[in-house]
């Protein structure tokens, strides 16, 4: 069992995950931010590695990715920074990024290195399910890494079942079909969607992401799922002066 699977085994509700882009706003604070978030009470983290053409991301994360690239962040640099991660941070860590930088690094080597530095799972929004299953799943499984799939309100029940089958920690439920950084709009349709997912009694817990930015949206999401992920709202905080010191208050405001 990796740290992520262990977490979902022991804690079932109100899980809070935070996303941030490695190398933003400064190149070398990746692990400092992780440490601060753990101390502030976050349950698990998603560290994004930047890509030049992030089609699933809104302006906030696009901007953070651009800055991170300008600062010199690469997959190599990130793994170098994460070498001593597990001396300082204990909560589960996911890496999140687009498929092309992983392919250039080499997907087998990527999984191996990720596992060596203590990463527990990977989210690759543009890695197709077929390619994952047929070509790459062995590298994930051999290295005890969870692959996280996304589900949107438009994902069919059959496909959700298939995703559930291929998952071994949690399923990333998108609050709507949108790019990152929008607002959570819990309309009747969305409630129906969450209820529909809940009624499917999937093997894997669901975590809601996209549009979670404050206590109200976090609490609402936790009514329907095991927890929620905050991304763009946190990346905005990183743009402020003395951002490390502001992390405890930020986390407390989301989940008092």
């Amino acid at each position: 069992m990796n740290r992520l699977q262990n977490l979902f085994h022991t804690k079932k509700t109100n899980l809070l995950s935070i996303y941030y882009t490695a190398g933003y706003p400064e190149l070398n604070t990746t692990v400092d931010i992780a440490e601060a978030l753990e101390k502030a009470g976050a349950d698990f983290l998603e560290i994004g590695f930047p890509y030049s053409d992030p089609v699933a991301d809104g302006p906030t994360i696009q901007h953070s990715s651009e800055t991170a690239l300008q600062n010199g962040m690469t997959v190599h640099v990130l793994f170098e920074q994460l070498k001593d991660l597990r001396k300082r941070v204990n909560i589960p860590i996911l890496l999140m990024g687009y498929v092309n930088p992983i392919l250039q690094y080499g997907i087998e080597k990527f999984c191996k290195t990720a596992s060596e530095v203590g990463v527990d799972g990977i989210i690759v929004p543009d890695l197709p399910m077929y390619e994952y299953e047929a070509l790459y799943s062995k590298y994930f499984l051999d290295n005890n890494l969870s692959n996280i799939f996304l589900v949107t309100p438009q994902t069919s029940a059959d496909r959700i079942r298939k995703i559930d089958e291929l998952s071994n920690s949690f399923i990333y439920l998108l609050s709507s079909s949108s790019i990152t950084g929008g607002s959570l709009n819990v309309s009747t349709n969305i409630e129906d969607y969450y209820k529909r997912i809940k009624a499917m009694e999937l093997n894997n817990p669901a975590i809601i992401g996209f549009g979670i930015s404050n206590n109200a949206t976090f609490t609402k999401a936790c009514e329907y799922a095991s927890g929620a992920i905050v991304g763009s709202a946190f990346v905005k905080l990183l743009a402020e002066d003395n951002y490390l010191e502001k992390i405890p208050a930020f986390v407390k405001a989301i989940r008092p």
Binding site: L69, V75, H76, N100, P101, L103, Q104, D126
Partner: peptide, 21 residues
């Protein structure tokens, strides 16, 4: 270019060693 993924397909694209377009 080298082989990689751009705009939804595996193809040949101009990119850095790190896979940035």
């Amino acid at each position: 270019g080298r082989e990689g993924v751009l705009h939804g397909s595996r193809t040949i694209l101009m990119q850095t060693d790190d896979g940035q377009v």
